[in-house]
């Protein structure tokens, strides 16, 4: 039962889906857990607009309901990334990744600004397109190897997964986490509410680190 992430320390068995805490996935899990707790505990920051050339500045008012909604989305995003890093089933991993994607969109979409909402819409389109690759990729893995369980795929006794299928899964995760788009992601940081927006970046980093481990053992 040794996988690319090491020998499992602890297995949680839900029928066909076995959640495995290997040293690698456990460290990612703890990282996600710590940041989720931080989001729960932290108080939202307030953004200041400073008018250049004068002493004038103003605080942006953010409604309480918006903050509560975004905190809820950030916590959901943290839970989803915890699930995504420890799950031991390929299709389940894809579902958790899709959950991370929609939570990221939710964190940003609640902001009352036309510009930010436009960005959220575009990210949502990318995330939705990425589910096609994720589900398609995992279905093709099941067809070519006969299983979706990652520990069994890691044993190496099954036929190799075609390279294009691996690319499907990697590009799909990139689209959900918007990993290659950090340049454009700066737009998100213009959205007020720092502790919650951090969750967008952290979750995409975590699912990307996990998909490397997943694809290596396919």
């Amino acid at each position: 039962m040794t996988t690319a992430g090491g020998t499992p320390l602890f297995l949680l068995e839900f029928g066909d889906i076995v959640i495995s805490f290997t040293p690698y996935t456990t460290s990612l899990f703890i990282l996600a857990l710590v940041f989720t707790l931080l989001v729960i505990a932290s108080r939202p920051e307030r953004q200041l607009d400073i008018a250049f050339g004068t002493d004038a500045y103003m605080t942006k008012e953010i409604s309480l309901s918006e903050m509560r909604f975004r905190r809820f989305m950030a916590i959901a995003c943290g839970l989803a990334s915890m699930g995504a890093v420890v799950t031991g089933d390929l299709f389940d991993f894809c579902l958790f990744t899709a959950l991370v994607g929609i939570c990221n969109v939710g964190i940003v979409a609640a902001v009352k600004s036309r510009h930010v909402q436009n960005a959220a819409y575009q990210y949502g389109l990318v995330a939705l397109a990425a589910t096609v690759l994720l589900f398609g990729g995992s279905a093709m893995v099941a067809a070519t190897t006969g299983t979706l369980s990652l520990p069994i795929l890691a044993t190496g006794t099954l036929p190799a997964v075609p390279l294009a299928v691996k690319a499907f899964i990697v590009i799909g995760v990139m689209g959900e986490g918007m990993a290659p788009f950090y340049a454009a992601k700066a737009e998100m940081f213009r959205a007020p509410g720092a502790p919650y927006v951090i969750m967008c970046s952290l979750s995409s980093l975590l699912i990307f680190l996990r998909v490397i481990e997943v694809v290596v053992q396919l």
């Binding site: 579902l95 899709a98 929609i102 969109v105 939710g106 979409a109 036309r114 909402q117 436009n118 959220a120 819409y121 949502g124 389109l125 995330a127 939705l128 589910t131 589900f135």
Partner: peptide
């Protein structure tokens, strides 16, 4: 998943 995300996105589209 497809239907749910489509629903959320269409609401965002209406607001935007």
């Amino acid at each position: 998943v497809g239907i749910a995300e489509l629903f959320a996105l269409s609401q965002i589209y209406l607001v935007k």
